[in-house]
Design a protein around this nucleic acid. Structure first.
Length: 482
RNA sequence: AGCGGGAUAGAGGAGCGGUACCUCGUCAGGCUCAUAACCUGAAGGCCCUGGUUCGAUUCCAGGUCCCGCAACCA
């Protein structure tokens, strides 16, 4: 690892044709926890996110609403920008793929790939249903015919597209994977990538005809074409840190640790890495891949009505805690596997809240601070804290769930320790011994509050404040659900 | 079809060649500092059949059953 003092972390850029998905909320919260953890370990961190705004789906959605594509994306980009406040994120940069700098960067990137001889034009055959006036993919056809217009012949139309010579990169990618054994995390995702590349790669189309789909970045030197949305969007990881015009900034931060969902494995681990090679840029440092969140054992879908909306979850805890965003952060970080698929329902969220936050952390703070405020004259004097090795180990392998479990384990041990040593009993017979115990409880609680900070930032800060001021929480940190 | 993942107490999850662990639930006890919270203990389990091995829940083979990738969707 080349750069040990600085860390550049990014999420993928969500596509702005729908409201933020809870799966993306999980991705961005995990990236946030990582950024906060690195900062707490004395590193400098740069945390990027943003929105992916080009492409046919946006164009169609905007057209359907009868508004300009830019106006459409402005509205949705704001929705995603709001996540920062809603989820308590320490985001440093929000890139929109419609930003002028990003557009320029994507065009320069294209030129570099072209200069490497990896971009060429070729005739592209598309299947077209005149009835629908739409292109059809093979999977949409039934017996070679449009399912809506089975009486019409599917026409084969030819159009010129630019292609990226992905096929040139089969061997270089396999070499990259062999020399960077922790490029893709977890390893079973890396295996999928390797297997996919080893089967041999096919060139992919990276442009669309402007007259059919105008909403994209203009291909350098060819006004008739715009870039396929993937090609332009992936460049955000470097445009966000100043590439190509501010190379000092770029070199300060690159390479990146990127988070993505499992549906993005190929794009990030294979396509993007090949594109970087083509542009003669170093590969990503790590690509950390999340699983999906199911609900009640099934994929979330509107028709099943089991969609967990991050905005709703936060709103539903507003009346019981001053830190509703930390509730969502907690369940996403604690109740879902760091790498496998997980499951979340409204019931499971409530159960986890009651057991871990209300009866766990919240109650622990109350019982300790009650003893402290009753029996101590003033705030406990606090000293520097050493590192928690088990947590560092978990973070080193990006196992955020395990890291949080270490903190929760410490809280649970402290509950048991209070029971064992019974300071509330000791203080009645020996004031001095009782005070020593209570001070110890406060110190241990403080340590937990420090460790908790990357995960539940506002809750952790509040516990620290209570300790510094030797105060009871005015209202329960995590109150009882109605 | 192909590719991939999985089957562990009532439920949901971890684990792993050698006393099988956690959370919730159930039952019994304890404590009173705390948000009827907290602590201790108990009952209960590795899909099936072979193989490798001193020893398999773990590795291998076969079987059964689930799930994902092809449908806007992270």
């Amino acid at each position: 690892m080349a750069n040990n003092e600085r860390v550049y972390i990014t999420t993928t850029l969500p596509y702005v044709n729908a409201d933020p998905h809870v799966g993306f909320a999980m991705e961005i919260i995990r990236a946030d926890v990582l950024a906060r953890y690195y900062r707490s370990s004395g590193k400098e961190a740069f945390f990027n996110t943003g929105t992916d705004e080009h492409g046919a789906k946006i164009h169609e959605a905007a057209t359907k609403e009868g508004i300009d594509a830019q106006a459409y994306t402005d509205r949705y980009a704001a929705r995603f920008r709001d996540l920062k406040g809603l989820l308590g994120l320490s985001v440093d940069n929000f890139v929109r793929t419609t930003d002028a700098h990003h557009v320029m960067s994507a065009q320069e990137f294209w030129k570099r790939c072209a200069a490497s001889g990896d971009i060429y034009k070729k005739l592209y055959r598309v299947k077209y249903c005149v009835g629908c006036e739409l292109e059809k993919t093979d999977s949409e056809l039934v017996n070679g015919r449009c399912s809506i217009h089975p009486n019409r012949e599917i026409e084969i139309r030819e159009e010129e597209n630019y292609f990226f010579k992905f096929s040139n990169y089969t061997k270089p990618l396999l070499e990259l994977y062999a020399t960077h054994p922790d490029l893709v995390i977890p390893s079973f995702r890396f295996n999928e990538t390797k297997a996919f590349v080893a089967r041999g790669l096919e060139d992919f189309s990276i442009s669309r005809l402007r007259r059919k789909m105008p909403w994209g970045v203009t291909v350098p030197g060819d006004d008739e074409h715009v870039m396929y949305v993937w090609f332009d969007a992936l460049v955000n990881y470097i445009s966000a840190i100043g590439w190509p015009d501010d190379m000092d900034r770029f070199e300060k931060w690159w390479p990146v640790i990127q988070y993505c969902g499992k549906d993005n494995n190929r794009q990030q681990s294979a396509m993007w890495q090949a594109m970087l090679m083509s542009a003669k840029l170093p590969p990503s440092k790590h690509i950390v891949i999340n699983g999906f969140i199911m609900s009640g054992g099934q994929k979330m879908s509107k028709s099943l009505g089991n969609v967990i909306n991050p905005f709703d979850v936060v709103a539903s805890f507003k009346d019981v805690t001053p830190f509703p965003e930390d509730v969502l952060r907690f369940v996403l970080l604690h109740d879902i596997s760091s790498f496998e698929d997980g499951d979340l329902t409204l019931e499971s969220i409530k159960a986890s809240y009651a057991s871990n936050l209300q009866n766990g952390i919240g109650n622990l703070v109350s019982r300790i601070m009650k003893m402290a405020t009753t029996h101590l004259d003033g705030p406990v004097e606090l000293h520097e804290l050493d590192h928690h090795n088990a947590i560092d180990d978990a973070f080193n392998v990006f196992d955020i769930k395990r890291a949080l479990e270490c903190v929760m384990g410490a809280a649970s041990e402290l509950d048991a320790y209070i029971q064992e040593t019974a300071p509330f009993k000791v203080i009645k017979v020996n004031v001095e011994d009782g005070e020593v115990l209570i001070v110890e409880m406060v110190e241990r609680l403080y340590r937990i509050a420090i460790l908790l900070e990357p995960f539940l930032p506002r809750t952790a800060k509040e516990i620290q404040r209570l300790i510094h001021e030797n105060k009871m929480p005015e209202t329960p940190l995590f109150g009882r659900l109605p």
